[in-house]
């Protein structure tokens, strides 16, 4: 299963990912993206498509 990955050093805290996530998985804390409820993530990839700063994406979980 794909894993949600973030790079907060690229995040500018615009909030687009959190606002358009259909399952309210994400939150912005102190101007950075935070994966609050990963268990709710349906891997739709909307956050990755919409993030203007490439700070969040889905990738294959290497541990599986």
């Amino acid at each position: 299963m794909k894993k949600l990955v973030t790079d907060t050093s690229w995040c500018k805290g615009c909030g687009i990912c959190a606002a358009f996530c259909p399952r309210e998985v994400l939150k912005i804390i102190e101007d950075k993206v935070f994966v609050e409820k990963e268990e709710n993530c349906i891997r739709c990839g909307q956050c990755e498509l919409r993030c203007p700063d490439y700070a969040i994406w889905l990738e294959e979980d290497k541990n599986e």
């Binding site: 990955v5 790079d7 050093s9 690229w10 500018k12 805290g13 615009c14 909030g15 687009i16 990755e48 498509l49 919409r50 993030c51 203007p52 700063d53 490439y54 700070a55 994406w57 990738e59």
Partner: peptide, 28 residues
């Protein structure tokens, strides 16, 4: 390591870009 698409198609050493927070140029 950024997302694979970004790694393949962009000069990641120049990122993050200069555009303002929320500017749609990044997603475009």
């Amino acid at each position: 390591m950024p997302a694979k698409l970004i790694e393949r198609e962009m000069r990641t050493e120049n990122l993050p870009h200069i555009w303002c927070p929320g500017c749609s140029h990044g997603s475009t």
